[in-house]
Design a binder for these strands. Sequence first.
DNA 1: CGGTTATTTGAAATACGTCAATTCAAGTGG
DNA 2: CCACTTGAATTGACGTATTTCAAATAACCG
Lengths: 262, 262
Amino acid sequence: MADRRIASAWQAPGRDEPAGVREAWARPLLRRLGRLATLTAEDIERVLALGVTRRRWPPGSLLPVDARAWGPHFVVAGWACNQRTLRDGRRQILDFIAPGEGFGFDPLSERHTGHSVVALTALETVAAGSLADEGPTASPSGLDHALQDVWFEIEARRQDHMVRLGQLTGYERVAHFILEMQRRAGPGADGGGARSFPLPLTQEVMADALGLSVVHFNRVLRQLRAAGLLEIRGGMAEVRDPAALAKAAVLPVPQDPVIGGP
Amino acid sequence: MADRRIASAWQAPGRDEPAGVREAWARPLLRRLGRLATLTAEDIERVLALGVTRRRWPPGSLLPVDARAWGPHFVVAGWACNQRTLRDGRRQILDFIAPGEGFGFDPLSERHTGHSVVALTALETVAAGSLADEGPTASPSGLDHALQDVWFEIEARRQDHMVRLGQLTGYERVAHFILEMQRRAGPGADGGGARSFPLPLTQEVMADALGLSVVHFNRVLRQLRAAGLLEIRGGMAEVRDPAALAKAAVLPVPQDPVIGGP
DNA sequence: CGGTTATTTGAAATACGTCAATTCAAGTGG
DNA sequence: CCACTTGAATTGACGTATTTCAAATAACCG
């Protein structure tokens, strides 16, 4: 459903594959974890061991996510999202899950809230249970640190998302969102955010995440394109003017704790 | 600043105080935890032991919240909120912290995100570290279960908030918000949500939480009042028509996991 | 009582949503 | 290779929700 025009982009092999790893499915995951900490050979083994739980899902699948029964997972290929559905059909996408990212680490779900995890493209997952269950080790390895950081990132992103939805205009929202996606896509050749990166999401999906109608999202996109800030075509996003885009995204201001306010 | 007209309401003594507890400050906290699980005498002792860390904050204080340095806390009196501030002064309130509720359990903060915890009224806190640090006990007590549930609640509320901000109209948002606050205020005399409960928040603060301008929030409030759904005056909220209010709040729809979507 | 802060209201501007139609890209079967 | 289908992207016209600016009350506090 959501993967006609855009099916090829995200499958394109990256250039900076972790060397020496035969298992192709593990590469996006290892790349992402490796960005957060240095992984030991043993860490890599622990990740590769997850392969036995690998599972495929067609696009549109609703993944079963009772936190207690199913536990944490990683997406190793394709994109998914957390979402909540309302009676009248409206839905809010809470966050996206890109290849190499995880879901089910937090106590979301609970059937009655309308929450669900949905496959936005063809999907492959592995269970992360065997990593998370081990809990804080006596001597935390790089992998443990990476998992902790993943957790922090998810939390920070959720805050970002609330700020977007509550305070930013449509124009600002899209700019802010694209910058987040660029950061998530990983560093480019120059070390900074990649100028161009895969974004295999339909406008409808992105609009549902940003709390905008598809029509309005499209119009905002046109504005941003006309202003030369970015380009989205064929499942790829291209940041054309990073500085202007960051300015449009109205980033938060740092704040020192002060005893006794104004 | 935010506590002129509304300073008296939240201080009013509740009727259903936990009996046999001399320490007045601990009552709201014990009441809330007691709603989630049955506390043993030992559990109550563990909570009372937190009293040594009790601390007061004037309204408007920015509380220091570097997750690692300061750790989790409970608010034992007054109201606070988590918020993010933007460069141009806009702020998004991420969630409220009522008497007996906690903050700092999650890895929020990180100075550069603009996140902060703010005292909305005069505030009293205790450090929860000694409870949380003990980690999962061999035989988890009622208190441990309660802490787990607190965690779940916070997560679920954050989802609710995103749905409000992203999908609901102003009218729906306010209705949805009031119902959440009613639930948080605890059961009334009849066991259901209390018809009337303390809500010592200014319209400006609530508007900042709901992503609405104060002016519009006020107008929506007028509509809801005119429709006979609710009343807010002098730091108290009164739900006049629970059924109609729930209908206006467009609650989420339950969803069974389905392998292979439509 | 005077000063301050919250609430309330009006009028005008604008951002955003809805409805409806068209274009475009990609696949499918002949 | 070309009609034909389908889902996504795009655009126009119009209505409505929400914001902004400005001002007037109303509640609280010392």
